[in-house]
């Protein structure tokens, strides 16, 4: 039988025929852009600490600044260009999360502020929130069961 006539044979043929992503180049770009973003975060953190903030407050300031910068760059139509170049490098840090919320907000603005921006803002980030929050609740319950002695509920 002709391999092109079975689903399996056709899939194998298509896999061979389709060009692959340039993994090495993509990984390299993701590595140095992701590293750069994290280094910027670290620099901000160190400056904050030097100015007398404690570690936790400094971390919050880093998050706020990186989210702010990423949202601003998304608005300028620049972040998608960075993302196209760096892939996971700009997607995985908190910058990618900010972009995933701002970009649908911009896209759906034409459908109004309530049903458009409000309703569609979390179409991309929604699954991350749902499963992130669900996982944290699950972990919390496990923690509660196995650590009853050391946990005070209030």
């Amino acid at each position: 039988m002709d391999p092109l006539e079975t689903k399996k044979g056709y899939q194998d043929y298509v896999d061979k025929k389709s060009p692959n992503s340039k993994i090495l180049k993509n990984c390299f770009n993701a590595f140095w852009v992701g590293g750069l973003i994290c280094t910027i975060g670290q620099v901000i953190l160190n400056i904050c600490k030097e100015r007398g903030f404690d570690t936790q407050t400094s971390g919050t300031i880093v998050s706020i600044l990186l989210i702010g910068i990423s949202a601003f760059l998304t608005g300028l139509n620049l972040f998608n260009k960075i993302g196209k170049f760096a892939g996971a490098g700009s997607l995985i840090p908190i910058t990618g999360f900010a972009n995933s919320i701002v970009s649908p907000a911009m896209e759906y603005k034409s459908e109004g502020y309530v049903m458009g921006v409000g309703g569609k803002m979390f179409t991309v980030a929604g699954p991350v929130l749902v499963f992130g929050i669900s996982a944290s609740i699950l972990v919390g319950i496990i923690f509660l069961i196995f650590n009853t002695q050391s946990v005070t509920l209030v």
Binding site: S18, P19, N20, S21, G83, K84, N99, V102, V124
Partner: peptide, 17 residues
């Protein structure tokens, strides 16, 4: 793109195919 895929401003990569 808006209806079927992702917002244009989303920083994702398009595969070569």
């Amino acid at each position: 793109e808006k209806q079927f895929r992702f917002p244009l401003e989303l920083g994702n990569q398009r595969p070569p195919s």
